[in-house]
């Protein structure tokens, strides 16, 4: 069962299913650009699937999420269905936001994304304040990348989050490149040190094993939900695809070396052959259905200024 309202399940099969759903969705998406079904651009999550699957295995279904330009994996792991996302990416009226937002600007239930680096973090901090004041019991998760560490709004927000003990988990996905700029050219000092400066505890893992991500995320989420203030989760990972579509300066040999960190390959041995085949069949059917259905949907029209 793949799609809406899937209750959070964190067994081996469910984690594998979530990661495979993201992988297949993004591969299908990249392929669709070649057929002219999609215009504009996209930022594929391929290679980073363990982050989303592990983090959302630790969060609660109603928690609030602010994601970034690379948001498809987060949305799917959060429980969003592939069909309205596919429709959004094709610019259809049935898309998540009626074709107005596209790949980087989606909203569904308590999930939001925007395409501005850094600027989303104060918004997420404000959301965390609202959840605490309204005593909703929800925490806010905001996803940033290594590239976002260059944005000043991030540090203003960390200061607020620490001062006001906001229920905010900052997840840093370090995929080692900000578009084409390697992290060595962009980040001075340590990533952890940037959070430590504000007294924000850090969980840091260099892994693509979804179980290790989940374990760290579980501790960080517990810290935040317990009311002790914000936390950070720094996940060093690898992006296998280009930043967007064609902007990848890395050599084929380097990309080939990264494949040993493939989170699906790392996790696959924990399932039986039969389980893997079953999951593969489910996911393939769900993605086929999503893209076929979205393809037939109507385009939106501008009815007024509103």
């Amino acid at each position: 069962m793949v799609g809406y309202n899937t209750p959070r399940m964190d067994d081996h099969v469910s984690l594998y299913r979530t990661m495979l759903l993201i992988r297949c969705f993004e591969e299908r998406l990249l392929a669709a650009f070649g057929t002219g079904k999609l215009v504009g651009t996209t930022h594929a999550y391929i290679g980073q699937e363990a982050d989303a699957a592990g983090v959302f295995a630790a969060a609660c279904p109603g928690d609030v999420v602010f994601s970034n330009h690379r948001c498809h994996g987060h949305y799917l792991a959060y429980g969003g269905g592939p069909y309205p996302l596919a429709a959004e990416l094709m610019g259809k009226s049935t898309g998540l936001v009626g074709g107005r937002g596209g790949s980087q600007h989606i909203q569904w239930r308590d999930f939001y994304s925007n395409g501005i680096q850094g600027g989303i973090v104060p918004v997420a901090a404000g959301m965390a304040l609202a959840e605490r004041e309204r005593q909703s019991g929800k925490i806010v998760l905001v996803f940033i990348g290594d590239g976002t560490l260059g944005e000043g709004a991030l540090y203003e927000s960390l200061n607020f989050a620490a001062l006001w003990k906001l229920p905010l988990l900052v997840v840093v996905e370090d995929n080692r490149y900000a578009q084409t700029t390697p992290v060595e050219l962009a980040v001075a000092g340590t990533m952890a040190g940037r959070f430590a400066a504000f007294g924000i505890p850090v969980w840091e893992r260099d892994t693509t094993d979804v179980l290790e991500v989940k374990a760290a995320a579980t501790e960080a989420v517990a810290h935040v939900r317990g009311g002790a203030g914000p936390a950070s989760l720094i996940l060093h990972t690898y992006r296998f695809s280009a930043h967007s579509k064609g902007d990848d300066p890395r050599s084929p040999a380097e990309l080939e070396r990264l494949r040993r960190f493939d989170p699906l390959a790392v996790h696959a041995p924990r399932l039986t052959d039969a389980e893997r085949q079953q999951v593969k069949a489910e996911v393939t059917a769900a993605i086929d259905e999503a893209f076929t259905r979205a393809d037939a949907d109507p385009l939106p029209a501008l009815l007024s200024n509103r």
Binding site: V64, Y112, G119, V121, P122, V123, A124, A125, G126, M127, A128, L129, A130, E131, E133, R134, G152, A153, E156, S157, N159, F160
Partner: peptide, 16 residues
């Protein structure tokens, strides 16, 4: 100032 405005936007999105 940037965080003040952003925090206010987040508060507004979530019911305040």
């Amino acid at each position: 100032e940037a965080a003040i405005a952003g925090i206010a936007a987040g508060m507004a999105l979530r019911g305040l």
